[in-house]
Design a binder for these strands. Structure first.
Length: 317
DNA sequence: AAGAGACACAACCGCCTAATT
DNA sequence: AAATTAGGCGGTTGTGTCTCT
């Protein structure tokens, strides 16, 4: 047995919201709140909208103190830096930018920032909001040069290494991410797992998988990498087993707490001894196609993002 | 002036996880 | 325990507007 259906799909209105609908939704929520139940909300107000749609409209447009457009220099910087660090986790990025919604940031990234970083501006065109191409922007100076090593039209840094097809674009020599991020970013720790409370398995697992991370457990004699040796021979882009491997990673994750407490490793280069495991560095070297120094720096940056664990350590390799 | 293409962004879609029955 | 939905999230699409030719 499950719950009752959320709404009558055939009877809900779709498409742009009218000012009347906006006014109804806004005034009701301001007076009564959502009541923790978006599905019931449209019926109470008399809107022919799906609860999901109401939620989206409120969060992205009607909510008080929402800012639209005119991203500042600092906001640009933060978005770029966080994107490099954690990829397209728009909700986390939005949490660092008061008044900005994940949808807004996502749109801004997809339509402007990414192109800017890729150096893909149409010659002579200035964007409609009059921001134009400002060659003096600090963020551009700092990031663009390095980004062009890391990105092509067909890939983005957040996915580098996650797709066998995309991986072929990863250069043999690239600038370390740490040099692109000359100043360490400050994150609100409540949004990211902390090493002492490393139990957000879902979040971390997603990131690791996205980055091409391998879960490796010395007690597991049937580690996925053993079953799919192609992952280490550089032929994964042509081997159908690679896709199965990716699915396998997602299907049977090893809990992060276990990885950190036992003799296990995961291939962002960090092990239970707060250093880089040999397997980790090799995994990253392969997955990212970088040399040892670059992998070490990148792993350190990622470790910093996830609460400061790890960092370069000597003698592990 | 008109058509084509580019752009911006609101809204939808589909997936995942947690909660509920 | 299994089935099903709600809520949340990231990816994608639809469409109105702007710019160029």
């Amino acid at each position: 047995m499950g719950r009752a259906p959320c709404c009558d799909k055939a009877n809900v209105k779709k498409g742009p919201w009218s000012p009347e609908e906006d006014a109804k939704l806004k005034s009701y929520i301001l007076k009564h709140g959502t009541g923790g139940n978006w599905i019931a909300l449209p019926q109470k107000i008399g809107l022919r909208r799906c609860g999901k749609s109401c939620r989206l409209r409120w969060l992205n447009y009607l909510r008080p103190n929402i800012k639209h457009g005119d991203f500042s220099e600092e906001e640009d910087n933060l978005i770029c830096s966080m994107y490099i660090s954690i990829g397209s986790r728009w909700s986390i990025i939005a949490a660092q930018l008061p008044g900005r919604t994940d949808n807004d940031i996502k749109n801004y990234w997809n339509t402007k920032l990414k192109k800017k970083l890729l150096g893909d501006q149409k010659k002579g065109r200035v964007d409609k909001r009059g921001r134009g191409n400002n060659p003096n922007r600090e963020m551009e100076k700092r990031v663009v040069g390095g980004f062009n090593y890391l990105m092509t039209d067909n890939m983005d840094i957040g996915n580098c290494g996650s797709s066998s097809q995309r991986m072929s674009y990863c250069p043999a020599m690239a600038l370390p991410m740490s040099t692109l991020l000359q100043q360490p970013m400050q994150y609100n720790n409540h949004e990211l797992p902390h090493p002492s409370n490393f139990d957000d398995h879902t979040l971390i697992r997603k990131l690791l998988i996205k980055l091409g991370g391998r879960f490796y457990d010395e007690n597991d004699h049937h580690a996925v990498s053993d079953r799919f040796p192609d992952i280490t021979d550089g032929s994964s882009s042509r081997n159908p087993g690679h896709e199965q491997l990716v699915n396998d990673r997602a299907a049977s994750p090893i809990p992060m707490s276990h990885l950190l407490q036992s003799d296990s490793h995961f291939t962002l280069g960090l092990n239970a001894n707060n250093g880089y495991s040999k397997e980790g560095l090799e995994g990253l070297e392969f997955l990212l196609g970088y040399d040892e120094t670059i992998v070490r720096d990148s792993a350190g940056l990622l470790a910093g993002v996830y609460g400061g664990r790890g960092g370069p350590s000597d003698g592990t390799r």
